[in-house]
Amino acid sequence: MSSTKTNPGYFFEDYHVGQILNHATPRTLHDGDVAMYQALYGPRFAMQSARTFGAFVALDDLITFHAVFGKTVPDISLNAVANLGYAEGRFLARAQSGDTIHSVSEVIGLKENSNEKTGIVWVRTHGYANGDRPVLEYVRWVMVRKRDTSAPAPETVVPDLAKAVEAEDLQVPEGLDWSNYDFAMAGEPHRWGDYEVGEIIDHVDGVTLTDPEHMMATRLWQNTAKVHFDVTARPDGKRLIYGGHIISMARALSFNGLANAQLIAGINAGAHANPAMAGDTVYAWSEVLDKAETTNPHVGALRLRLVATKVNAGELRGEDGKYLPDVLLDLDYWVLIPR
């Protein structure tokens, strides 16, 4: 027995370029979300840990990311095989406890895969706080199943995306004052000028993933993708770890060596290189890709590659140019750090 009242989610053939998706349901963020985030990942960045650290107070940037992302899942990735990548991400304003978040996406690209069973969907998502204040925008692309493999493929449109967000387009929060930044309380002395392009930072620590924690995290953000919960959704009978869980875990691990990288300003590119499962132990390393000044004389920007891996720091691709099988995440992003 079936009902027309239930929502099976969108399949690849349901999308068209230019389609606008207003995602349900708005979500109000509270201090409880901060506590849960701390419990799940254990980040130690001072600005998100202590209200007494500086005059600027905001939720962790990845709490905003997860809240915005989670809203999009029922309309974009409920029937996804995998979330493939990110581009052109900018944190436009910082969410505060008490803000209500909602998301809107536009379909900007479509391409059926050669197996004719799945296709790639590109969307540009905007996150808003309290109705109309932009807090985040990004592009992501997802591999989505077809409902009917014989359905005709839509016209192929592959969007032309920027390789990186320009440094001058990064938003430095108004009122951010690092003129008297307390490096001792932040945990490390390293500032913008101490990092060199090409430098590799091994973050040393590792965390073994479990099913309960990633399912709790995925529920926290109201991410309903079947592959994270239902063992029948994948042929191997395993739950796929939510890619955002790996991002947050790697970001938390990066504190050791990047403790003063207090704010995420942009996401240039990102790939979930290989699936992560319960039992995997995650390590992280970073490479400094670029440096830039900002309009704030006390704030610099670092462009970093953050890699989550199950093996040694510095190893990313094989001789064939493909990601090594133990690489889980390759994230190219901008952070703000004291000068």
Score class of each variant (00 low, 15 high):
G300H: 03
T25C: 07
H203K: 14
L84G: 00
A278H: 04
A265E: 01
K5L: 15
V157S: 01
T6V: 15
M249G: 06
I201K: 13
Q48D: 07
R303Y: 06
T100M: 05
R251D: 05
T28G: 09
A284Q: 07
A273K: 07
V204Q: 14
L331W: 09
R140S: 11
E293W: 00
T118Y: 07
T295N: 11
F53M: 13
A250N: 05
R145G: 01
L78N: 01
P338T: 02
V165F: 07
P154L: 12
L328E: 00
L29S: 05
A273W: 06
N256W: 10
L306A: 05
E137A: 15
L331G: 00
A80Q: 03
N22P: 01
L258Q: 01
H298S: 12
A80I: 03
N180K: 14
H228S: 04
F56I: 07
D148R: 15
D132A: 14
I20Q: 09
A93D: 11
H203Y: 13
D194A: 15
S114Y: 04
Q222M: 15
V311Y: 06
D211Y: 03
T210L: 11
S49P: 02
D290T: 04
H228M: 03
A58N: 09
V57I: 08
F69P: 04
A292S: 11
P74K: 12
V107E: 02
N223C: 12
Y128V: 10
Y138A: 11
M143F: 04
R133G: 06
T125C: 13
L110Y: 06
D61T: 12
E155A: 15
T118L: 09
G175H: 06
R27K: 14
L29I: 15
Q222V: 14
G89L: 08
P26L: 01
A292F: 08
D202K: 11
R90T: 08
A167T: 01
E155K: 15
G175F: 08
N274I: 00
Y323L: 00
D205W: 14
I337L: 03
S49Y: 04
G198R: 14
A82M: 08
G131F: 04
N83W: 09
N260A: 08
G187A: 08
H66Y: 02
D60I: 10
P159T: 05
I108V: 12
E174Y: 02
G243Y: 01
H272D: 00
D61H: 12
L92N: 06
R239S: 03
M215K: 10
P43N: 03
P43Y: 03
H126C: 11
A217H: 11
H298R: 06
L258Y: 01
I76N: 03
T25E: 09
P338I: 04
P74E: 01
V311R: 14
R51T: 11
A35V: 09
H66E: 05
S114K: 14
Q171N: 05
N296V: 00
